[in-house]
């Protein structure tokens, strides 16, 4: 009789059951039944003696959004990179739609779209060629890629720019192109690393609007950000991290009240020690 090999991961707030199949370790039951698209448990990253990320756990449900807020160097980008499997994790586990990212990265990546901190557009290709070049990596035919590119470029308002070279685009347009590119494989989850950093107010609002539309379509969003207003507008839940560890988490709307602050930005500044510092400076210098 064939015995089923299972593995149980326990982490703060729960446990995940994995079953070994030909394709590797596949998460069973829990995620799909609970509508969880992303399950992160006990995630950690060490570089030698330096711990960049320590024991981060959270879950993200289908059609929901979660933002990770933290100062520069807090471990936000490293956390994302481990989730989208370009950086190896030292501890913990990540499952996307029930697929173990560590053992089946190829399959897991088919379900996600990534908007990296840098644009990373191919400057030797024009707008639509950048879309097609990314689409073919997902096993999408040229004809289908072209159709998909037209549709997505319309969605982000760049259809009339599809034959433009990359250097002819503004910063906001480039970010929207990267967003469109991340959607070529119809991802169930999009991961955005500081998506609007450096953009002007209009461009940020256009970008936010598109993300809100995606969310309405059932796409889940995981993002990092430095902006309180961005998080309040886009994220259902927020995770505040500092020195690689979660220092606060909860519903975006409820967190300020829980910690006695006006808004998310104040919570963030308060928990990372900046509010006290600022008050002290104000008292000293008036």
């Amino acid at each position: 009789m064939k015995t089923e090999t299972t593995k149980i991961y326990t982490f703060e707030g729960g446990e995940s059951k994995y079953v070994q199949t030909k394709e590797g370790w596949v998460a069973k039951v829990r995620f799909l039944e609970n509508n969880v698209i992303l399950d992160v448990g006990g995630l950690g990253k060490r570089y030698g003696n330096f711990t960049a990320v320590k024991n981060i756990s959270f879950q993200l449900e289908k059609g929901h959004s979660l933002a990770i807020l933290g100062p520069n160097g807090a471990g936000k980008s490293t956390t994302l990179k481990m989730i989208y499997a370009t950086t190896a994790m030292t501890t913990g586990h990540v499952a996307i739609g029930g697929i173990n990212v560590e053992t089946s990265p190829r399959e897991a990546k088919r379900h996600i779209g990534v908007v990296m901190q840098d644009d990373l557009l191919d400057t030797s290709l024009n707008v639509i060629e950048n879309m097609i070049a990314h689409a073919i990596l997902f096993d999408i035919s040229w004809t289908a890629a072209r159709k998909k590119a037209d549709k997505l470029l319309t969605f982000v308002g760049l259809f009339n720019y599809k034959t433009k070279e990359i250097h002819e685009l503004s910063g906001g347009m480039r970010r929207r192109l990267v967003l469109a590119r991340s959607l070529v494989n119809d991802p169930e989850l999009i991961i955005l690393d500081e998506p609007t950093t450096g953009l002007d107010i209009q461009s940020r609002h256009v970008f936010w609007n598109r993300l809100e539309q995606l969310k309405k379509q059932g796409v889940s969003i995981l993002m990092t950000s430095h902006y309180g207003d961005e998080i309040e507008r886009l994220a259902d839940d927020v995770l505040i991290i500092d020195h690689g560890q979660v220092i606060a988490s909860g519903a975006t709307a409820a967190l300020p009240e829980k910690y006695g602050y006006k808004n998310i930005e104040e919570v963030y500044l308060g928990l990372t020690g900046y509010v006290e510092e600022r008050d002290e400076i104000e008292q000293t210098f008036g």
Binding site: Y84, T86, P105, R106, E107, K109, R110, V114, M116, D118, L120, D122, T123, H134, L137, F138, D139, N185
Partner: peptide, 13 residues
């Protein structure tokens, strides 16, 4: 250009 990184976010290793 970090094109390899961009490609690596797709299923290509």
């Amino acid at each position: 250009d970090k094109t390899y990184y961009e490609i690596n976010t797709s299923p290509i290793n």
